[in-house]
Computed example of a mutant assay.
Amino acid sequence: MKIIKWILRVLPFVYMTAIFIMSSLPSDQFVKLPDSEIDHNIKESLHLIEFAILYVLLVLAMLTRRGAFTPALNVACAVFSALYGISDEFHQSFYAYRSASWFDLVKDFTGISVCFYFVRGALFKGKFARLGRALGRVNG
């Protein structure tokens, strides 16, 4: 179980590195679908989950530590994810083949907010019992 905790602690850093690297490359570097409109829509929709995943990974990493996972720490995970989203948009603005936009940030923040709602409900509001039990096992 100890190795799983260390993996969960390292995953956010690995994921942030992957985001940084992929933001430095053209959007079609890895995958380009034949229909350019579908390709564009799918890649734009990924903003809804990209930083939500980071938030969830940060929550999981914080749950593996000894101290209690508090509402303030939960907010800190969400804020950190949002700030990393802002830094990612700033980073992309330096590449001619990438774009940075306020709308992308709104999508990033929306994904984080949805996950925040569920995590907060599961851990602090007595909602989403199954999710709460799963998160509790990480903390256990």
Rank of each mutant, 00 (worst) to 15 (best):
K32V: 07
P26M: 06
T17S: 11
Q92W: 00
V31G: 01
V114F: 08
L33H: 03
G140D: 08
A122N: 12
F128T: 14
T64M: 04
R66D: 07
I53F: 05
R133K: 10
D88T: 00
R98W: 04
G126D: 12
L105N: 02
R137L: 15
L60G: 15
F20D: 11
A129M: 13
M62L: 15
G121L: 09
V119H: 14
S87F: 14
Y84T: 15
P12F: 05
P26I: 06
G111K: 05
L83T: 12
E37C: 11
Y84A: 15
C115Q: 07
G85S: 11
K127H: 12
Q29V: 09
L131Q: 02
S81L: 07
R120Q: 15
Y95F: 12
T110C: 05
S24V: 07
F51H: 14
S45L: 03
T110Y: 01
A96Q: 11
D104F: 09
M62N: 15
Y97M: 06
L135E: 08
H47N: 07
Y97E: 07
K32E: 09
F90T: 03
S36L: 11
V79C: 06
S93L: 14
L123A: 06
G85F: 09
N41Q: 09
Q92T: 01
K127A: 10
A78F: 04
G111P: 04
F118E: 09
I42T: 04
Q29R: 11
G121A: 12
L131R: 03
G140Y: 07
G136W: 01
R137Y: 14
F109I: 01
I19P: 00
V119W: 12
F109W: 02
G126W: 09
N74S: 11
V56C: 12
L33E: 02
I19G: 00
F69V: 04
A82F: 08
M16C: 07
Y95D: 05
F103C: 01
A100T: 10
E37R: 14
G136E: 03
V106E: 04
L131E: 02
P34G: 03
M16F: 05
G67R: 11
G67C: 04
S99Q: 09
G111Y: 08
I86V: 14
V138H: 02
L54S: 03
F80C: 10
A76M: 06
K127M: 12
F51P: 10
V79I: 14
I49Y: 08
L57S: 03
Y15D: 02
G67H: 06
N74H: 08
Q92I: 00
A100D: 08
V75I: 13
S81P: 10
L63R: 02
K107N: 12
S81H: 10
D28S: 02
F94Y: 07
D28V: 01
E37I: 15
G140H: 08
Q29M: 13
R66N: 06
Y15S: 06
F13M: 11
F116L: 12
C115N: 11
D39A: 06
L73G: 09
V75Q: 13
I86G: 07
